[in-house]
Nucleic acid binder design. Sequence first.
DNA 1: AAGGAACCGTACCGTACGTTACGGTTCTCT
DNA 2: AGAGAACCGTAACGTACGGTACGGTTCCTT
Lengths: 224, 224
Amino acid sequence: MTSAAKTLAPETPGLDPAEPTARQAAVLDAVLALMQEEGGQLTMAAVARRASCSKETLYKWFGDRDGLLTATVQWQASRVRAGRYDRQRLDASSLRDSLRDFAANWLSVISSPTSIALNRLAISHAASKQSNLGQIVLENGRFAIGNRLKPVLEEGRAAGLLAFDDTEAAFRTFFGLAGRDVQIRLLLGDDLKLGKAEIARDAAAATDQFLTLYGRTDQKPAAA
Amino acid sequence: MTSAAKTLAPETPGLDPAEPTARQAAVLDAVLALMQEEGGQLTMAAVARRASCSKETLYKWFGDRDGLLTATVQWQASRVRAGRYDRQRLDASSLRDSLRDFAANWLSVISSPTSIALNRLAISHAASKQSNLGQIVLENGRFAIGNRLKPVLEEGRAAGLLAFDDTEAAFRTFFGLAGRDVQIRLLLGDDLKLGKAEIARDAAAATDQFLTLYGRTDQKPAAA
DNA sequence: AAGGAACCGTACCGTACGTTACGGTTCTCT
DNA sequence: AGAGAACCGTAACGTACGGTACGGTTCCTT
């Protein structure tokens, strides 16, 4: 923590989170791959070996081990930007579809090996208070999905499809209905198996429950 | 992992999880205290210093570092056995009270510094696959509350107050409604403040939502 | 009181790993 | 082609920490 660890890619000025070069991205992918393997040998030497680069280069690019891990977390976060929900005309059916997509997408994310490894890493570091990995993961996970879903909820309310006072509270209910015990079980090593089918089913169930709680004129239209 | 690490307290035979002696319990409490401090110096030397005992004794009693941590987790688990819910006659009101108590108790547990530290530790170890701390924590957390709450749900169903097919699914919904994003945020270091008042309010809200989803003839009896 | 077990405090050992240093190679620029 | 930067592979260094050894002290047993 003494030396550089500031500018990640000097050749692309102006970007603060610092877009990594292709080679740097390959290194970060190596880190991601490495931390998903159970043996968990996440050492600088292992990263250098896996990425076929020298340790000197790692330190030159990322400053220290913490910088490398932070860059890795941000790198992964930067490509989860998928799934924009363009505002279409909202009726009961499209709202339900949107919610289902959100829930299914979220379940897919939190059950992916990458997310599990990343969250474990960030949680470990949150214990030692040595970095802000936890904040980064939160910002790109729980809070990011909140910021993307809340406009949908408010549009649903504006369209008379949903009824709630506190958007945040409504979102947290949806979050709980969708996620339930999945994330904590996976983080603790329970081998919960979540296939596409289960995710789709659970996302639909959570959405139906949410609409039961917050839907307005909408009710059970014998969906399934 | 080469030497002892089997019988924790030879002077109390017959107990498999091995009730620790008073002195040993003091050591385990030192570990618990140590892992709640942010600096997180959870080394054998630090434990010995904190507990005013020698490292040699630690190794004699617990075998190795992993044995010490496992004993600590089990020690903490052994005293969360509080909150037995004696089956009283179940009416709508007492069921609602029971559910609120469960939710409030669970929120208190997961927001306590001890639980946070313990879960962080277990999650870190789940990454390295080096022990079964994760399983122990799951067994005494998520699954323990499930086993205690499910009978209540089934009594509620038997009494005609609740309607559901799958007890496990109903419990998981309750779990999600109560916990929502609380645990993951706390584990990742978000400084979410949960006082008694918030817990009581959130537990009541979760219970009301659960009863809306699963209650039978029961509805909003203008409780508050 | 004598013997011994248990235990404390400290010193010591070996290893793992973060970090730095360096020689040799490849790539870039002019 | 030649100079210099960037980088790879490997070696070396220092420290932190898990685990062990040992002398001295307390306490229990007989």
